[in-house]
Design a protein around this nucleic acid. Sequence first.
DNA 1: TAGTGGTCTAGACCACTAG
DNA 2: TAGTGGTCTAGACCACTAT
Lengths: 245, 245
Amino acid sequence: MPLPDAASPLYERVKGYILGRIGSGEWIAEHKLPSENDLVQQLGVSRMTVHRALRELTSAGVLVRVQGVGTFVAATRPQSALMEVRDIAEEIRARGHRHSSAVLALEKTRPGRDLAREFEAAGLRTVFRSLIVHRENGEPVQVEERHVNPGMAPAYLEQDFERTTPYDYLQRCAPVTEVEHVITAVRPGAEIGSLLGIAPDAPCLLLRRRTWSGTAVVTVNRLWYPGERYSLGGRYRVGSRGPAS
Amino acid sequence: MPLPDAASPLYERVKGYILGRIGSGEWIAEHKLPSENDLVQQLGVSRMTVHRALRELTSAGVLVRVQGVGTFVAATRPQSALMEVRDIAEEIRARGHRHSSAVLALEKTRPGRDLAREFEAAGLRTVFRSLIVHRENGEPVQVEERHVNPGMAPAYLEQDFERTTPYDYLQRCAPVTEVEHVITAVRPGAEIGSLLGIAPDAPCLLLRRRTWSGTAVVTVNRLWYPGERYSLGGRYRVGSRGPAS
DNA sequence: TAGTGGTCTAGACCACTAG
DNA sequence: TAGTGGTCTAGACCACTAT
């Protein structure tokens, strides 16, 4: 049976099957996939289901489809430095500076409906929450509020996050395979402002980040940066999308 | 006949129908759409087709769906793709909204030393400069100050940037091969603030972007976004592959 | 319980591409 | 002409939400 039994929708399992072949190196860039009808036979699902899986992987840039010809594994694109998830402690040390942090909260809590939706898990009962201030040479540069899926990181609350970092621990339990970032400019308000040592109405970068490991959301985070002391950036090559002839 | 006859697929026409209602203001944020079955009746198409249209608009952020409750127009906070250089006019139209712009300056000027350094061309004598405000449904969402290397885009000053966009013209003369982004949060100050219709001390995203075509710097830009009305973001697969979804 | 969206199937017709 | 992907339908069952 090629498709593992799981509670996820069939088309997601078909996607997983294909991503697995690609991830294992069995299907490399330019490889021609079996036709929809072949996959229908091999996987024992309907053509609409196969088609949906292939369509979604195509719009995600994983596959390239050409009518009348076939479906192919897309050529890879370069990855941007800006969107990388890096350990802030490492980043600071890489600048030759001293990193320190203070753990202000580390607890179990109940997610509201919005948070449960962000975790893509409506029935989620509890989440872990941490609130940490990171300092560079003693100066606050980031307030990090994390919500963590307890199923993915059961020992989260037992960690000492003044010695290690959430990034470090989570990367061991549930390596990140996908990231979503949304950046806005906000006023930090009194609470976050005082943690960052800036005025409550000073401009402030708010980075919302969700990370996935496989198909499960591992963390939902909010990171505040003092706007005038910090910036996010990167330089990268623009890749050509689509079929590499 | 609610769906105009067209050569595009039915589900695209259903999407167009819905985007039209939203664009015209008939359905505003939070508005509850007719149920799938109602739309099946009204539009005379099958439920799978309606469902596909609604699903794609949901993944595009236009709609929000809650199982057992209904489908709603999303409270859109316009969002730009962070790592891709996209035409803002196209981005806005893709959300089913109306794009308009005002050209406040379009001129030849002498670069200062810093600007010449950013162009990586110390001897640069003149640069083109444009200052444009972009609006989404009449509301300012971006102030775009561009400096353009005249050697790469000689007819820049003759373009009508209320009909086309700098992106569009430049992409034809000098396709972007490399990009650098730096994002900070700032106070816009009186001038930019008034162009964006926000207070001079309201939080504001400043995106500095340089683009290359081959080894030459084509543009050095500063883009201001009203922090509370706009965000930058994206979702990416980690590793060797490009953006997800 | 009734109504919503989420998924899945079997079968159909079409447009496109290659040999 | 045979094979591919693109679309569309009618009907079904399910999970979830509100009342």
